[in-house]
Design a protein around this nucleic acid. Structure first.
Lengths: 239, 239
DNA sequence: CGCTGCTTTGATTCGTATCAATAGCAGTGG
DNA sequence: CCACTGCTATTGATACGAATCAAAGCAGCG
């Protein structure tokens, strides 16, 4: 999807940044952007690499430029739960006090525009439009978190997997270059990670995948690839 | 806890408002507060009464002055899930576009300071400190939603109930007039509502309550009353 | 070609839901 | 004051879905 970064982008400027219009930065004009930019830096992450650890302090915040990341927590006895998925243009980290509660890990190679919380808080305080954009992003995150609560509280394994696949498909369609896409995509998640996201075990996820495949609703050409064959039926299962 | 409302408060002014310092209004000075106040009105709700319905539009937003409310959604086949609990000083409703996704219902008699979303959005846009406060509240809500995701995704019935009771106890202690309180409190929830909150059935909740009672960790003097007898043990169960 | 790690599949167990009945409490009217 | 009613909560028996335990299959990679 991304070609070679332009020289300006590589050098850490915001010109040609693919999320310029969608991230909170959209609230800033060129001069302000330059100022904010001088406070932060680009960070590249490999798949599996973590940006922030649970309980981290001094904390980092930032905007995802490229790649998919997850926020996760564990219970004391080792059970894991993914509590949020972070996509390009999403904001990550916890501004305004409070220790970071989650580990943030890249699932795919990723680029993030990061700031120390201190710097970011200060800058945001001087730029209300930025805070307004951040508020809007946060409200959207909260909506997503709440539908996830419904999924985890009241949906069974089949419904969870159906919802997950439709969700992934929608996202693939939205940022896919090809307009007709969305029916065929690569998951950024391993089976275990899908399980950690849906509050299930890897075995249950696997079984549900094969069940959907056998029923002809989806196809699984490779471990990470998914093809939606019968979206309507899938939506029905999603409840 | 509340005496007779002062004449000013009854008339709809903010003087002596019990959440003046904790709600988003804390960001405003006297003059601004007067202006905001002129846009809204007080609404009194009886227990069980709803303030906002799922898919509502024209939408309402506001600040809870007194009482406990819940935000809930249901699946098409009638399963219910509570996706958020709203306490005094909390903000409720969805500003900035997007249809309201949840029904908001009072569990106890409640007073809410309400605005039309349109009016509120406009006012907020002209008052950055208010938006900043709202952002902080929203970030806190998001944190709470995410710990709830962990609970629903990875905790068993016993852990869920233990966490719930400790949570309720903490809240009772924080707004209780008596400083030594927190070990004895009234639940604003029926058993069914506890079940809807914890993603369980009423029978499972009841069984866990009796189990904790028999184990001597809690006491249940009446349907809604709870006494914590062994907080340490309860914390252990909470995981 | 044979590791190594991920995924699928199978057998069984366990926790919670479901179904069904009883018990307790609050309100109502005799 | 007590029977009656309706509602909420508790308790019990059983069923079912997902977890757990265990093994085999499959891809990527030295």
């Amino acid at each position: 999807m991304t070609g070679t970064p332009s020289r300006a982008e590589a050098a850490g400027s915001c010109d040609g940044c693919p999320v310029r219009e969608h991230a909170i930065c959209a609230a800033l004009d060129a001069a302000e952007l330059l100022e904010l930019n001088s406070l932060g830096r680009r960070r590249t992450l490999g798949a599996g690499e973590s940006l922030i650890w649970e309980g981290d302090d001094p904390a980092l915040v930032g905007t995802v430029i490229e790649g998919t990341l997850v926020m996760s927590t564990g219970t004391s006895d080792g059970r894991e739960q993914i509590v949020g998925v972070v996509h390009p243009a999403d904001f990550v980290g916890r501004p305004f006090g409070g220790a970071t509660r989650h580990t943030v890990t890249a699932l795919t190679p990723a680029r993030v525009c990061v700031f120390s919380r201190r710097d970011f808080d200060g800058f945001a305080g001087r730029h209300p439009p930025l805070e307004r954009k951040l508020l809007q992003h946060t409200l959207a995150d909260l909506d997503r978190a709440r539908s996830w609560i419904l999924l985890l509280g009241r949906k069974n394994a089949e419904e969870r997997v159906a919802i997950f696949l439709l969700d992934m498909s929608r996202r693939a369609a939205s940022d896919g270059a090809v307009p007709g896409a969305g029916d065929r995509f690569e998951l950024p998640f391993s089976r275990q990670q899908v399980a950690d996201l849906l509050g299930l075990t890897i075995e249950t996820v696997s079984r549900q995948f094969t069940k959907l495949k056998r029923a002809g609703l989806i196809d699984l050409p490779s471990r990470r690839a998914v093809v939606i064959r019968d979206r309507a039926a899938l939506k029905l299962l999603a409840g």
